[in-house]
Computed example of a mutant assay.
Amino acid sequence: MEQKLTLIMSFLQTGSIMAPIFFIVFHVLRQFLFIPVVVVCITGGILFGAFAGTLYSVIGLTLSCIAFYVAVHQFPRFMARILQMKNKCFGNRKLNSQQVAVLRLIPFIHYHLLSLCLMETKKGLKDYSYASFLTNIPLAFIYTIFGNYIRAFSPTLIILLLLSLSLLFYLVREKQTVIPWKEFFSQNSAG
């Protein structure tokens, strides 16, 4: 198993000139597969190293933002839903590019929600694309550097780390007990 993972990683690192193109396209497709941006950026650091991984991630994230811009303008209902989510999170406040760049470093904030915040302050595709490019640099740099350090680990250790984080994510979830209405009142009136 470890040999197969090493072979795949070495193929993607040096074996194919198409690997960077696939990685950039994967950044654009990531939003439809519901994969967090952070995971893809860390993977870029593991596969391509700090400099190339950051470069490919910035290109892929900027193309993802442009695809989001086009989608929002093509589907008004989608825009309305994202605006509603933005108003719940930030109210009517408008965030500047520096604020968006900092908030993009927080993995739990919806990536395209912040893209919408950029859209509100930057009019036109050209200004929006440039602002997206600039706000993606810190995100791609920090998480790709993290992925580059993980690269020194063995594939088995990487898988164990990811499985441990998945287990931790499951264990810290919010636990709720749902009691049906009738059952709640039948127990309550008996006692």
Rank of each mutant, 00 (worst) to 15 (best):
V102C: 07
L47V: 14
G147T: 02
M119S: 11
L160D: 01
F90E: 05
L63W: 04
L161C: 06
F184I: 06
Y143M: 15
S166C: 08
L29H: 06
V58Y: 05
Q84C: 03
T54C: 07
S16V: 07
T135W: 03
I59R: 01
F48W: 04
L157F: 13
P36I: 07
A52W: 13
F11L: 09
Q31H: 12
Q31I: 15
C117W: 00
I106Y: 10
Q84N: 08
A52V: 09
R173C: 05
R77F: 04
P107R: 09
I159P: 00
K88Q: 01
F51W: 13
V28G: 04
V37Y: 08
L125Q: 05
V38I: 11
G147Q: 05
P76S: 10
A80Y: 09
K175V: 10
H112R: 01
V172I: 12
Q84M: 01
L7K: 03
I159S: 01
V100A: 12
A190H: 11
F11E: 04
I66D: 13
A140N: 11
F141R: 14
N188A: 07
S164M: 10
L5G: 07
C117R: 00
T177N: 13
I35H: 12
V38C: 05
G191M: 15
A71E: 15
E120C: 02
N92Y: 01
F34Q: 14
V100E: 13
I66Y: 06
K126V: 12
L61C: 12
F51K: 03
Q13V: 09
P76C: 03
G53N: 05
N96I: 01
S115A: 14
F78D: 11
I142C: 15
L114P: 00
F32Q: 07
I145T: 14
F78K: 09
L83C: 03
I137P: 02
K122M: 05
Q99H: 00
L55R: 00
A52E: 14
Y128Q: 09
M79T: 12
F34T: 15
L29P: 00
L55E: 15
P180F: 10
F78A: 10
F185A: 05
F78H: 06
L61S: 09
R30Y: 08
G147H: 06
F141K: 14
H73E: 15
V178E: 15
T14F: 15
L5A: 14
E174K: 04
P36Y: 07
V102A: 13
Y170H: 05
T156D: 06
H112G: 10
R93E: 01
F90Y: 05
C65G: 14
C117H: 01
G49M: 10
I59C: 04
I59N: 02
T14R: 15
I145S: 08
K126D: 08
F146H: 09
F141W: 04
L114E: 02
Y170D: 06
L55M: 13
F34G: 09
I82C: 13
I106S: 12
Q99P: 00
A140R: 08
L63E: 14
S16C: 10
R81V: 02
V102S: 06
T14P: 01
E120Y: 02
A190I: 06
I82G: 12
L167Y: 04
V178N: 12
I46W: 12
F11I: 11
N148M: 12
T54S: 09
I82H: 08
A71V: 06
A50L: 13
T135R: 00
V38T: 06
F51V: 10
V100F: 11
